[in-house]
Design a protein around this nucleic acid. Structure first.
Length: 1220
RNA sequence: GCCGAAGUGGUGGAAUGGUAGACACUGCGGACUUAAAAUCCGUUGCUCGAUGGAGCGUGAGGGUUCGAGUCCCUCCUUCGGUACCA
C-alpha cells in the first residue's frame, strides 16, 4: 500500500521545481491574459515567518497556481519591507549593522517560504533597503518635491531629554522614553511633508471604484473625513471699558444689524481690518451704541451655519495666530500666555486623554456675530485644534456637545435656535440637541428646516462677502521625515551660502521658457530636445524657435521675430524665462531692455565686439558682414533698464569655451557685476550639442533655482547622483544623535549646486511607508536600471554620436548591415553594457550575437574597414577603423535584457548604436512590422500591462495608512503621466487574524505561538497549507486547533492511499459526473476565495472515492489537478507516480463539461403550509400537477393536507410548496 | 460616543429566499491489539418517545413571504477601528 512520506517528496520536489523554473514569470504582451497576485511584502524580522504570513501567502499562491493552470501569465513576486526601527534597535543593542542582520533574516524567510511551497518567482525579489530600490524611492521624493508635492515645515516631534534624540511614537511609553526612561517633550523641528491633502477628494471619491472590503473603504473615508461647511468671518472689536455682562439676552437688535449691513459698504466686514475702520455696536443690548474700532477678524469654519444665531462665544486654539497678533489688546495676556504654554507643552496624547474642557476667556476682545450682531466673548481652549479647519470655532452650546460641556463649565449662556421636530409627544426638550430640525430665534431664518437654512444662510454669507462654502478634510499632510538611520536618505542638499544669498529651488513654478539659439544653429536640436522633455515634465512650457537666417543673422529681424511671435503672444500673467545661447544670449539682453522677464540665463553669450567673439577665418564673408551689423546694433546696452526689467540674470560660461574668449567673458562680468549671478564651468566648451552629448542637467536646475525662493539654500540632489547611499561608517552605540550625522563620508564632496561652496545633505530618512507605497510598481520591472518601473514616457536617454564623421560612418555601417539584411539599431543593449545612459562615446559600437559577428566583420573588411585588433579573449572586442572612426564590435550574451531578445528574434542579432528608442520604434513602423512594434512597446510597458494588481492580500491592520499612501503615490505618478492607472489595487482582501488555540492573539507572552516550520516538520507543508485554508472564512479571525490540523493530515494520508485504487481502464459514469461537479465547485470557490469550502469538497470527494472499488485514471488526474494549487507537493508527486514526467503545475486546469448531466435522481422537497413534510424522488422531470398527484398518493405526506389545496408553488427540481 | 464587522450544535464552521448544521474536530459506542498509539466502522443540535415518529431550534422581539439563518424594523451582545475634526 502506498504511504504518504512528505519529508522525502517535499525536498525532492523543491529541487525539481527550482531546476525546471516552473514558476518563472514571462514578459507580458498587450492582449495577454494576465494575473498579478500581490502579497503585502513582509518585514523580514529575525523571528521568521509566522502563521499569518503563511495564510496570506498560501492564499496568493493558490490564486497564482490556479491562474497559471488556466493559461494566464502570472506575476507572483515577493520582497522585503526591510527598513524600519526593529533592525536599528537590534543594531544599537548588538552592534550588528542592519544591512547584515536584515540580509540574514531574508535568507531565513526565503528558506521558509520555499518550504511552504509558495510559487514565487524569486527573480522578482526586491528589498526596500537595497540601493537599487531606494534609489527610486528617492527619485519619487524628488518628483514630488519638483512638482510642489513635498515641502518642509515645522512640526512637533517627541524629544527625549535624556538621549537628546527624536523618538517614534512607539518608543514613547507613558510619556517616558522606552530606553532611558527620561521625560519626553514636544519639540518643534523642520520636517518634510507630502501634500496628500491635495488628493483628499480623489482618494475619497475613487473608493467607489474599488472591490475592497466595505469596512476598509469606510475607514478610509472616515480618515479622509470630508465634510461640507461654511467659512465665515467674525470681526473682532476691542472693549476697553467695563467688562460687559456675561449674559447676552436673546437679542432683537435689528438696529445694530442694520447699522452693520446698511452703511453702504458691503465689504466693510470682509476687509482685513487693521486700518482703523469703525462700526457702531452695543456691548449689550441695554447699553448705548458706541463707536468701536475693528481690530482684527476671526475666520471660523462650521458645518452647522444653521445654528449661528445660537453662537454665544468663539473659541480659538492655543496656537492661533490671532493671540500673538492682538496680545497688546488682551487685558489678561499673562493669564492667556500661561494657558498657551501649558497646553502646547502637553503631548498630543495628554491633550487627547484629558477629560475636562479647560480654557480661559480673552478679556478686552469680543467677536461680532455677523448674523445676530451680538458681541460675544472669545475663549482660548485646547479642545479646539489648530490643524483642523481654521483653528477657530463659533461655539453653539445648545447644539454641539463639546461647546455645551464647555459652556456649562464656564457659565456661558446657552441659546436654543433649533427645534427638534421629530421628538415624540410629551418628551421634554433637552437643553442639548445636536440633530437637524427647525430654526427658531433666528430672525428671518426662523421656521426654516436646517437643510434649507444652511443653503440660504450660506448664500447670505457669500452675498455679504463674509465668507464662502468650503469642503474640509480631516486628513493631514503626510509627515515623512524620520530622524533615524535605517531608512532611505532624503535626497536633499543644503547650502549655507545659497541660504544666505536667498537662492533656492522653486518647485512648481510654471514658466514660459524661451530658448534663443546662436549663430548658425537651430532650436529643436541635440540636447535641447532633452531640455524640452525635462522642462515639460516640470510643467513648464518650452519654446525652441528657429531664428531666421542663422548664417546671416540680422538683429532687427531676430528681435522682431521673437517679439511678434513670442513675447507679445505670451499671456501677460505668465513668467518668462529666456535662455540665450551665444548670439542668442546677446539677443536676450537686448530684449530685456524692452520686456519684463523673470529670468535670463545666458549661456556663453556673445559680446557685441567682433574681435572678442569671432575668429575671422571660420566664417564666410556674408556671415561676417551680418555679424558686424548685428554687433553694431547691439553695442549700446542699457544696463539700467535691463536691471529694472529682469528679476534675475544668470550668466554661465565655461573656461574651455572655444568660441567666446576669456576677455569677452570678463566684459559681461564687468558690465553686469551688480545685477547678475555668474557661473563658471570647466569642461562645457561652447555648450554646443557636441560639447554636451548627455544633455545639460545643470541648466534644468537653473531654470527652477531663483532668488527669494521659498526654500532658500535647499536643493534637490541631481537625479544622476542617485542613490544617496546610507553611510556605513557609523556607530550604533546610542549617542543621542542619528548615526548618519556622525558619518564622515556622508557629506564628503557635497557642493552647493550654484555656488559650488561646501554644502551638506539632509540627514533625515524617509518614513518606511514611503518605501512600501510603490513597491508593487517595482515588481513589474525589478531590474530596470533607467527608471523606477517601466515608463514609456521616460525612456532612457541615449548618446548621440559625438561628431559628424562618426555619424556619417555610423550611417554607412547601418546601410551596410541593412544590405546584409541585419537591423541597424539597438541603443539599449549598448547602453546597458556600457554601464548606463550617460556614458560618452567616441566610437561606434556594433553589437551582435557571436555567430553573426564573423560575417559582419568580413563584410566590413570588404568595404575598406581596416582591422586593428581581432577578438580578444578577455574583452571579446574586435576593433576596426575607417578614416578616423573606430568601430568596436563585440559579441554579447543574449540574456542580458529583454531588448536583446527582441533584437535576436526579429533582426538576426546585429545592432549598431544609432540614436534613441524612438528611432527603433520609427524603424518598426517604417518596416510595417506590427509584431515587432508591439513587442518593443510592451517591453517598455510592463508596469502598465501588469498593473493594477488583480488581488492584494494584506493584513487587516493595514486598513488605512499603507493603502492610502499607496493610492496617493499611484495617483501622483498617474498625474505625472508615468502610469496609465490611478488605483493600484482594484481588488483587495484581508486575511483574517489567526489566534492561538486559547483564542488570544498569538504572542510569546501567552506562549501560544505556532511556528509554520515546526508544523511542516510535524506533518507536511501541504498539511499546514490546507489546514490554514480550511480553518474558516479567509477574512475572519479564527483560532488555531491542532486536532483539526491533524484531521487535515489524515485526509492527505487517505488521498495518498487512494492512489492504489487508480485503474487505467476503469470507467464509471458516477465518478465522471462527480468529478465534473467538483471542477465547477472548486473553480468558483477559488475565484470567490472560499478556500475553506473548497477543502471541504475535496474531503467529500475523497470520502466518495473511498467507497469506490476502483478509480478511473481520468477522474483521478482531474482530482489531482484541482487540488494542485492547495497541496502542490503531494499532488505533483502522485501525478508523477502515474507516469507523467512533467510537473502537474504546468498542466491545464480541467474544464467543466456542461454536457455531462447529473444522473442522480431528482429530489423534490414537499412543504405543506410552510413545513417540510417529506421528499419525492423522481427519475424524470414532472409537471406541477403530476407532482401534486404524487403527493396525494403518498400517505405519509398527504396526511398533513387538511382540506382544499388553496395554492401551490413549484420551484423546478427543488421544492413543492402546498398551502391549504 | 461615532464608524465597521459579526452573533448558527460541545468546537471551527456550511447553507444563489427553498430539507439548517455540509466538511471537520470533540464526545460516545464498537473493531483491530496482550495493551497503548495509529487506523477503521457506527453515532453525535435539543426535548419527548421503545420504535415509527412528533415538537422545538440560527442573539431577542416584531414584520414581509407559500417558505426567512438569509430581506425589512427595533433592541441586546462580542470583536475591530477611531476619537474633542467644529
Amino acid at each position: 500500500m502506498y504511504k504518504y512520506k512528505p519529508k522525502q517528496i517535499e525536498q525532492e520536489l523543491l529541487r525539481r521545481w527550482r531546476e525546471c523554473n516552473v514558476y518563472s514569470t514571462q514578459n507580458l504582451n498587450a492582449g495577454d491574459k494576465k494575473y498579478y497576485s500581490l502579497y503585502s511584502f513582509p518585514y523580514p524580522s529575525g523571528s521568521g515567518l509566522h502563521v499569518g504570513h503563511a495564510e496570506g501567502m498560501v492564499a496568493n499562491d493558490i490564486m497564482a497556481r490556479y491562474y497559471r493552470m488556466k493559461g494566464y501569465k502570472v506575476l507572483f513576486p515577493m520582497g522585503w519591507d526591510a527598513f524600519g526601527l526593529p533592525a536599528e534597535n537590534y543594531a544599537i543593542k548588538t552592534g550588528t549593522p542592519p544591512q547584515q542582520s536584515t540580509e540574514n533574516a531574508i535568507k531565513n524567510f526565503i528558506y521558509q517560504i520555499d518550504r511552504l511551497g509558495i510559487s514565487v518567482d524569486w527573480s522578482k525579489e526586491i528589498g526596500t533597503h537595497r540601493p537599487d530600490y531606494y534609489k527610486w524611492t528617492q527619485w519619487i521624493f524628488l518628483e514630488l518635491f519638483k512638482k510642489g508635492k513635498a515641502y518642509k515645515k515645522k512640526a512637533p516631534v517627541n524629544w527625549c531629554i535624556g538621549c537628546k534624540t527624536v523618538l517614534a511614537n512607539e518608543q514613547v511609553i507613558d510619556g517616558k522614553c522606552e530606553r532611558c526612561d527620561s521625560e519626553v517633550v514636544q519639540k518643534e523641528m523642520e520636517q518634510w511633508f507630502f501634500r496628500i491633502t491635495d488628493y483628499a477628494d480623489r482618494l475619497d471619491s475613487d473608493l467607489e471604484k474599488l472591490d475592497w472590503p466595505r469596512g476598509t473603504k469606510q475607514q478610509q473615508k472616515n480618515w479622509i473625513g470630508k465634510s461640507y461647511g461654511t467659512r465665515i468671518k467674525f470681526n473682532i472689536v476691542e472693549i476697553n471699558d467695563v467688562i460687559p455682562d456675561q449674559v447676552i439676552p436673546q437679542t432683537n437688535n435689528s438696529l445694530l444689524l442694520k447699522n452693520i449691513h446698511s452703511n453702504g459698504n458691503d465689504n466693510l466686514l470682509s476687509k482685513s481690518t487693521k486700518d482703523g475702520l469703525k462700526i457702531s455696536v452695543r456691548e449689550t443690548s441695554e447699553t448705548d451704541l458706541k463707536e468701536k474700532e475693528i481690530v482684527g477678524c476671526l475666520e471660523i469654519f462650521t458645518t452647522r451655519i444653521d445654528t449661528i444665531f445660537g453662537a454665544t462665544f468663539c473659541v480659538v486654539a492655543p496656537e492661533h495666530e490671532i493671540l500673538e497678533a492682538l496680545k497688546n489688546k488682551i487685558q489678561n495676556w499673562d493669564e492667556v500666555k500661561r494657558y498657551i504654554s501649558e497646553s502646547t507643552n502637553k503631548t498630543s496624547l495628554e491633550r487627547q486623554t484629558q477629560k475636562e474642557k479647560t480654557g480661559i476667556e480673552i478679556k478686552g476682545l469680543r467677536a461680532l456675530n455677523p448674523f445676530s450682531g451680538d458681541l460675544i466673548p472669545i475663549y482660548v481652549a485646547d479642545y479646539v485644534l489648530i490643524n483642523y479647519g481654521t483653528g477657530a470655532i463659533m461655539a453653539v452650546p445648545a447644539h454641539d456637545e463639546r461647546d455645551y460641556e464647555f459652556a456649562k463649565r464656564h457659565q456661558i449662556p446657552i441659546r436654543k435656535v433649533i427645534q427638534n421636530d421629530d421628538k415624540n409627544e410629551g418628551e421634554k426638550d433637552d437643553e442639548l440637541f445636536t440633530g437637524y430640525g427647525r430654526l427658531i430665534n433666528s430672525r428671518e431664518f426662523s421656521g426654516l428646516d436646517s437643510k434649507t437654512a444652511i443653503e440660504k444662510m450660506q448664500n447670505w454669507v457669500i452675498d455679504k462677502n463674509l465668507g464662502r462654502k468650503e469642503t474640509m478634510f480631516k486628513i493631514r499632510d503626510w509627515l515623512v521625515s524620520r530622524q533615524r538611520y535605517w531608512g532611505a536618505p532624503i535626497p536633499i542638499i543644503y547650502s549655507p551660502k545659497a541660504e544666505k544669498e536667498g537662492y533656492g529651488y522653486v518647485p512648481k513654478d510654471k514658466l514660459n521658457v524661451l530658448f534663443l539659439h546662436g549663430f548658425g544653429s537651430s532650436g529643436r536640436k541635440g540636447w535641447r530636445i532633452d531640455f524640452e522633455k525635462e522642462m515639460t515634465k516640470l510643467g513648464h512650457k518650452v519654446y525652441l524657435p528657429d531664428l531666421p537666417n542663422p548664417l546671416a543673422p540680422s538683429f532687427v529681424e531676430w528681435e522682431n521675430f521673437i517679439i511678434e511671435n513670442y513675447l507679445k503672444a505670451f499671456d501677460q500673467n505668465e513668467k518668462v524665462v529666456v535662455v540665450g545661447h551665444s548670439l542668442g544670449g546677446l539677443l536676450a539682453f537686448k530684449l530685456a531692455e524692452k520686456f519684463k522677464l523673470a529670468k535670463i540665463i545666458a549661456l556663453a553669450p556673445a559680446t557685441p565686439k567682433m574681435d572678442e567673439t569671432v575668429d575671422d577665418h571660420l566664417y564666410t564673408s556674408e556671415s561676417l558682414n551680418a555679424l558686424k551689423d548685428f554687433f553694431n546694433a547691439t553695442k549700446d546696452l542699457n544696463v539700467a533698464s535691463i536691471s529694472k526689467n529682469v528679476d534675475e540674470l544668470i550668466i554661465i560660461n565655461s573656461k574651455d569655451d572655444y568660441v567666446i574668449k576669456q576677455k569677452s567673458q570678463e566684459f559681461w562680468k564687468k558690465l553686469f557685476k551688480d545685477i547678475a549671478m555668474f557661473v563658471d564651468f570647466e569642461n562645457m566648451g561652447h555648450f554646443n550639442n557636441q560639447d554636451l552629448p548627455n544633455g545639460f542637467p545643470e541648466l534644468y536646475a537653473y531654470i527652477n533655482i531663483k532668488n527669494n525662493s521659498p526654500y532658500p539654500g535647499i536643493f534637490p540632489v541631481n537625479e544622476r547622483d542617485l542613490p544617496v547611499l546610507l553611510p556605513v561608517d557609523v556607530n550604533f552605540k546610542p549617542t543621542g544623535e542619528s548615526p548618519i550625522k556622525l558619518s564622515k563620508t556622508f557629506n564628503q564632496g557635497v557642493k552647493c549646486p550654484i555656488f559650488g561652496t561646501d554644502a551638506f545633505r539632509e540627514s533625515d530618512t524617509m518614513d518606511t511607508f514611503v518605501d512600501s507605497s510603490w513597491y508593487f510598481l517595482r515588481y513589474t520591472d525589478v531590474s530596470n536600471q533607467f527608471a523606477a518601473f517601466s515608463m514609456p514616457k521616460l525612456l532612457p536617454r541615449y548618446n548621440s554620436p559625438r561628431n559628424n564623421e562618426i555619424w556619417e560612418t555610423a550611417k554607412e555601417v547601418a546601410a551596410l548591415l541593412k544590405d546584409l539584411n541585419y537591423a541597424f539599431f539597438g541603443p539599449l543593449a549598448v547602453s546597458i553594457i556600457n554601464g548606463g545612459p550617460y556614458k560618452q562615446l567616441s566610437e561606434i559600437d556594433v553589437v551582435a550575437s557571436s555567430h553573426h559577428l564573423k560575417s559582419v566583420i568580413d563584410s566590413l573588411i570588404k568595404n575598406n574597414y581596416e582591422l586593428i585588433t581581432t577578438e580578444q579573449k578577455d574583452s571579446g572586442y574586435t576593433k576596426l577603423r575607417k578614416n578616423n572612426v573606430e568601430l568596436t564590435l563585440r559579441s554579447i550574451s543574449l540574456e542580458v535584457t529583454q531588448e536583446l531578445k527582441f533584437i535576436e528574434k526579429y533582426y538576426d542579432g546585429v545592432m549598431l548604436k544609432v540614436s534613441t528608442i524612438e528611432d527603433l520604434i520609427e524603424y518598426c513602423k517604417e518596416k510595417n512590422d506590427n509584431e515587432a512594434l508591439e513587442m518593443l512597446e510592451s517591453t517598455y510597458n510592463q508596469t502598465n500591462l501588469w498593473s493594477p494588481a488583480d488581488i492584494y492580500m494584506i493584513g487587516a491592520e493595514h486598513t488605512v495608512l499603507h493603502l492610502l499612501y499607496s493610492r496617493f503615490l499611484t495617483k501622483f505618478l498617474y498625474d505625472c503621466g508615468y502610469i496609465n492607472f490611478s488605483e493600484p489595487f482594484t481588488k483587495m482582501r484581508h486575511m483574517g487574524l489567526i489566534l492561538g488555540s486559547d483564542r488570544r492573539k498569538m504572542s510569546k507572552r501567552w506562549n501560544n505561538v505556532i511556528n509554520p516550520i515546526d508544523e511542516i516538520e510535524k506533518y507536511s507543508a501541504d498539511t499546514i497549507r490546507m489546514y490554514e485554508m480550511f480553518m474558516g472564512p479567509y477574512e475572519e479571525a479564527k483560532p488555531w486547533n491542532d486536532r483539526t490540523e491533524n484531521g487535515v493530515f489524515r485526509f492527505l494520508n487517505r488521498v495518498a492511499e487512494l492512489s492504489d485504487k487508480v485503474s487505467e481502464d476503469y470507467e464509471s459514469i458516477t465518478q465522471k459526473q462527480r468529478v465534473n461537479e467538483l471542477v465547477k465547485k472548486i473553480t468558483t470557490d477559488i475565484e470567490s476565495l472560499s478556500y475553506n469550502t473548497a477543502v471541504a469538497k475535496f474531503m467529500e470527494f475523497s470520502n466518495f472515492l473511498q467507497e469506490e472499488e476502483s478509480i478511473s485514471r481520468d477522474v483521478w488526474e482531474k482530482f489531482l489537478k484541482l487540488m494542485a494549487p492547495f497541496a502542490p507537493f503531494l499532488t505533483d508527486h502522485l501525478w508523477n507516480l502515474l507516469g507523467n514526467d512533467n510537473s502537474i503545475h504546468l498542466e491545464k486546469w480541467p474544464d467543466y463539461d456542461g454536457s455531462i448531466s447529473s444522473v442522480r435522481d431528482i429530489k423534490i422537497v414537499v412543504q405543506i403550509n410552510g413545513k417540510v413534510r417529506g421528499t419525492l424522488t423522481l427519475k424524470n422531470e414532472a409537471s406541477e400537477s403530476e407532482l401534486i398527484e404524487l403527493v396525494k398518493q403518498n400517505e405519509s405526506i398527504s396526511k398533513y393536507i387538511k382540506g382544499e389545496i388553496k395554492k401551490s408553488i413549484y420551484v423546478k427540481e427543488k421544492i413543492l410548496s402546498i398551502v391549504c
